[in-house]
Amino acid sequence: MKIVACYNVKGGIGKTAAAVNLAFLAAHEGARTLVWDLDPQGAASFYFRIKPKVKKGSKGLLTGKKALEEVVKGTDYPNLDLIPADFSYRNLDLQLDEVKKSNTRIQKLLKPLASEYDFIFLDCPPSISLVSENTLIAADAVVVPTIPTTLSLRTLDQIIEFCNKLNIDHTKISTFFSMTDSRKKLHKQIVENPPQHVRVLGTSIPYASDVERMGIYRQPVPVFAGNSRAAKAYRTLWEEIKSVLG
């Protein structure tokens, strides 16, 4: 089982879209795949049309009253399951703080699912917090969507710094450019001259209406626009991530 965390401190940069589309592509290839929607906003759950509700909430999961496998929901796609978001996840930080070995709790919760899934995608909330720390520790690969702007690159540096501070191996971080607009000069410049101190994947996800339309169709892009630029980009991105995972 490989855990892929889609993470960024910033919101609205294509984390959930990446998690949903990459997970769909993995499942479509036959890999047993799970998405855990850790963001209380529940966007991934929304895309899969699954109610953002977990019985006994995050506390039930953290205290072991409810096993993670009991709250898994099947999506509309073969091989692809979801652990929905729950409003209680907004307090996940505080709840994690109350349990022992608080920074490895998510890793521990996921362990029993190792034989059941080939890939687990964590759709992380946008923050620097104990939840982020947990996901960064649990993940085999941390995928950081980055908009090719100065501020976003600055955020990327903050994430790497955060990893260094926590002694988390930052080589598991891979970034890719998200919402790129080739008409914008700055985007073009940054994509052509990516940062050197972190692994930057070759694929950029374009700023495309098909990605936005995921919210209308409530489906992954390859389902309703299989031949679109965005779908092709996600496919290439998935191939790259697989080779990073080895």
């Binding site: 899969f48 049309r49 699954i50 099947g74 509309d76 409530r218």
Partner: peptide
């Protein structure tokens, strides 16, 4: 296909 109100299977 049996669906819920969100058209989820």
């Amino acid at each position: 296909i049996i669906l819920d109100e969100e058209h989820k299977t």
